[in-house]
Design a binder for these strands. Structure first.
Lengths: 308, 308
DNA sequence: AGAATTTACGCGGTCCGTAACCATG
DNA sequence: CATGGTTACGGACCGCGTAAATTCT
């Protein structure tokens, strides 16, 4: 059994059982991949695929088991290579991070600035997607780290390290009547058209739950994945905005008044997730540290709320 | 990176960093193994060994990390091969079991009889050793399963499945004065010379603890690893025997009187341990089942005591 | 001096690319 | 007939064994 056979096998599965496509991804010609698969089946003495004629349709029961171990073997060898690079060329490499728009736009910039100053030789890739996509990317090893607030609790292959806590704030144009209301309650928020995130993004789930537990239904006139969009429509006078507190930028958003809402909604915890079995290079570990340090002002996990 | 390089690397470590010896174990010549090691170091761009001149003395820090992942890779590929064999030749293979003398002599025979009837094509190897050696064998993958009663609680690489509970009994020649004592207490046992197991064997630890908790010290005139030896000396009149209950064989030991001692000592649990990350072939799993079934009469874990 | 490791070299095997040949929808 | 897979074949590479050179105890 050879590693290249396992690589062909795994790549084939990830290429929808299209041998030609797998070959291309592996920078090989198609007959080579076919041979690897045949060698693997011959050596094991078992068929691994469901077939119709020459076409491969999917894995059979044996193939499923083999796939899991093949992935484990390739992960292990990948780790060995990473350990090598980590000691041979400490300061160079690639760091692939996935994050939602809110994180990428408002939290990561300062982290990246500090990290890049420390590791000028490390190429950073910031990928963006929905929370579900982030999980998927990191599970498929399409990225090294994913900055997640929601949706990763159940996955056994991932390890999530908590980084900081945050909550929402209200934004409204100066002079808006809602700003006069004291105290701010859920009822008050329901009295105005609301602009906030769509479901599944930036804590929208927990927010909606809070309303419905009180038997309230806010009038959400617009849902966005992107805080910039929310702010824009708030400025247009379409409604009041409920956004993640760290997305309010005093320098640029002085025309919008902010009111803390942490007394109304549960705290969200933003974590960094990575594959449990994968070796993290020194600078990848360090990125997590820097992330935690840079977000310390926002609210450290396990300490009192601080949403300056 | 090639699997054969990793194999050479791991084998070298397990051969006390003697390249020639590693080569022999791998059925290769020595320069071949040297080349593998050099290729590995060259490709990773890092030294993996502590050296004095050409001699290899041990691993350095990097080598340690690489070793762990190399083992993981080889385990994974081994698992793939096992899955293959498991489906291609269900009924044939090798099963290597390690056990202490007591288990091998008194518990395993009926298990083996039943198992072998079911799998005539499976070659059984019964290895014997001290409890510490059993753990070591299974951790180093020198055996597939280890039948253990003590000393495996802490090891993270192992999985132990509980099989049955047992306790001790007293054996003495017919007519011995101790047999007249009712009830049998710890004090009574201390009144006579005792023959039992040495420390670390067959529950001797828990037995001694029970005495010392009561401030008692039995007069152990002979410690053995082997119940047959204990019985022999009891027959010679050297003292009373305290042995594992399942080691009393009514057919052969009719000349020795037995008294249950389960009211005096804690129950012991015998488990079968195997490597957590290793694929167990069908018949290996089945051996565990058969073991549990055959020992059910002795005392099932989680049910009431039954030491018929 | 002897044991252990590295260097040198050549043969055999095999990996993969090219090209021609089949199957399926 | 186009897309996708297998069979056939040859050149280049490389893994390993033999043998000589080198280094450490």
């Amino acid at each position: 059994m050879e590693l290249r056979q396992l690589r062909s096998f795994v790549t084939l599965v990830e290429s929808d059982f299209n041998v030609s496509q797998a070959a291309e991804r592996l920078h090989l010609v198609q007959p080579a991949v076919s041979q690897h698969l045949r060698q693997l089946e011959d050596e094991l003495g078992v068929r691994l695929f469901r077939r119709r004629g020459k076409r491969l349709l999917g894995l059979n029961e044996v193939g499923d088991k083999v796939l899991a171990y093949a992935r484990a073997a390739l992960t292990a060898t990948g780790n060995i290579a990473a350990v090598g690079k980590d000691h041979a060329q400490e300061q160079t490499g690639v760091l692939r991070v996935a994050a939602t728009h809110t994180q990428a736009r408002y939290v990561l910039p300062s982290v990246v600035r500090r990290f890049s100053a420390e590791y000028p030789g490390v190429a950073l890739e910031i990928h963006q997607g929905t929370p579900a996509q982030l999980i998927d990317m990191v599970v498929r090893d399409g990225v090294d780290l994913a900055v997640c607030t929601e949706g990763l609790d159940p996955h056994p292959a991932l390890l999530a390290v908590p980084c900081y806590r945050w909550n929402r704030c209200l934004v409204a144009p100066e002079g808006h009547p809602v700003l006069a209301c004291k105290p701010l309650t859920l009822d008050v928020l329901c009295a105005y058209p609301v602009i906030t995130y769509v479901f599944g993004f930036t804590g929208r789930g927990n927010m909606s739950d809070t309303f419905s537990r009180e038997g309230l239904r806010p009038h959400v006139v617009l849902g966005a994945v992107d805080t910039d969009v929310i702010k824009t429509y708030v400025r247009e006078g379409l409604g009041i905005g409920i956004i993640a507190d760290m997305a309010y930028q005093p320098d640029h958003d002085a025309d919008l008044a902010r009111r803390d809402l942490s007394h109304l909604f549960p705290w969200e915890v933003t974590k960094i997730a990575h594959l449990r079995n994968k070796y993290l290079r020194g600078f990848q570990q360090r990125f997590i540290d820097v992330f935690q340090a840079e977000t310390a002002g926002l609210g450290q996990v396990g300490r009192g709320p601080k949403t300056g």
